[in-house]
Structure formats: structure tokens, C-alpha cells
Design a protein around this nucleic acid. Structure first.
Lengths: 109, 109
DNA sequence: CGGCATCCTGATGGATACTG
DNA sequence: CAGTATCCATCAGGATGCCG
């Protein structure tokens, strides 16, 4: 029997669209890639790795990524305060897919 | 030798970010999924499959997808005119990755 | 039928300054 | 150090109507 989709399977809240929304922000992929390359990283270090991002935007993106379960935020009660971000398992499971997408991009763009 | 990326590998024009830009538009994934499910499809049929899209936006998205090599546009000189869109090989090679991302989304969102 | 022209609006992104 | 607060710019996305 043939595919019965006359409607796009991506209507409603399909997981693909949802995923795209979650990682689709301007800096989110960069943040995830940076954490993946460098491991646990402090706020200002992330900022240094992302050329041109402002505090406003970076903080907002990190907060969303944390809310959506992509990164963890750990606060160390030192003076001055130290905050480190890291990828969650969930993000790590995403990496091979992002790498596949990257490879696709290299060959097709 | 360990990874030397202190800078995020996604700076500059990395293929991953570029890919995300190309397929990141609000309707583009839906369009691609629809064409993948249904094959060669007419303009108005695509519009019917995408709930709530306006002509303006759909035409713009299709034009961009065509420009970026994701879809082909074939005009049949009939009256009234018939136009059909279809996926390119490039898009078809993208599908397994999108499906992987979709699977990831299903398990992780 | 398959669009394009026009105008509009909200969300996203950003610069700058300031604070616990 | 790691953010907020504020204000501003841009633009993707959308409603509507018209055209070849």
C-alpha cells in the first residue's frame, strides 16, 4: 500500500519542526558546537568563542538551551562567581546528526 | 593529539550553519517533507498540504528552495498554466538526516 | 493557475550601560 | 564574573488584492 500522506507529515507539532525550532536560533548551533569541542566552559569563554555575540543574546540563548534540556548550568559559589555550561546527554546524542548535516553541507553547498 | 578548537568550529561560514540557514525558514522543512511524501506536486497542491501558508510566503520559500538547489520547478505550457515542483537529488540525500533528526526529536522532546 | 506588489506587524537580534 | 535592563533596528513572516 502506498504512502497515504496527502497532508505533509510535518503539519501539527512534528518532532522535526520542533527540533528545528529549538536549535534554530542564530547562535545555538555555535554554542552547542563550542561546548562539544571544548567541554565544560565558562560563560565568558563561550562568549570569546562566539565572535560578535552580545551578552544580551548569549544569556538568552543559554537560558533557552538550558530550559530545553540542551545544556546544564553549574554555579560555583566562589568570588567572583564562576558559572560553567556543559552539554547534556541529549545534546550529545544530537551531535552525530549535526555532523551528518555538516557533511551534507560540505558536499552540497 | 587533542582537538585544537578553542574557537567554535562553527564560526565563519561553516557548512552546518549554512545548511541550517538554508532549511531554517518557517515552511521549508514542511515543503521538503511534503514533496518527499507526495513526489512531484503542483503549486496549489503544496499550498493545500501546508496549512495556513499564504501565497506570498509560499512563493518566496519555493523560489529560495529552487535557487538553493533543493527543488526543481517545471512549467507546463498549458492553459491554465501548470507548475510542478519536485525534490532534487541533493534534497533526497538530505532526507535520511532529517529523518534522524526527527527520530531524535521524538525521543528527546 | 500560479504567482507578484504592497503594506504591515511581531519576533529576533543587537548596542550600550549597569548590577549582584 | 556573569549576567540584566533598556532601547533600538531589522526582517522574516503574513494579510490582502491584483495580474499574466
Amino acid at each position: 500500500m502506498k504512502d497515504v500522506h496527502s497532508q505533509c507529515p510535518c503539519m501539527e507539532r512534528c518532532p522535526l519542526n520542533r527540533a528545528m525550532e529549538l536549535i534554530g536560533g542564530k547562535w545555538k548551533i555555535q554554542i552547542i558546537c563550542s561546548l562539544n569541542s571544548n567541554g565544560k566552559t565558562r560563560y565568558n569563554a563561550i562568549k570569546g568563542n562566539l565572535d560578535g555575540v552580545s551578552n544580551n543574546i548569549l544569556a538568552k540563548a543559554l537560558k533557552e538551551l538550558e530550559r530545553d534540556g540542551f545544556v546544564t548550568r553549574t554555579e560555583y559559589m566562589e568570588v567572583p562567581i564562576r558559572v560553567e555550561y556543559d552539554l547534556t546527554i541529549k545534546s550529545k546524542r544530537l551531535m552525530p546528526i549535526l555532523e551528518a548535516l555538516s557533511d551534507w553541507g560540505e558536499e552540497n553547498i
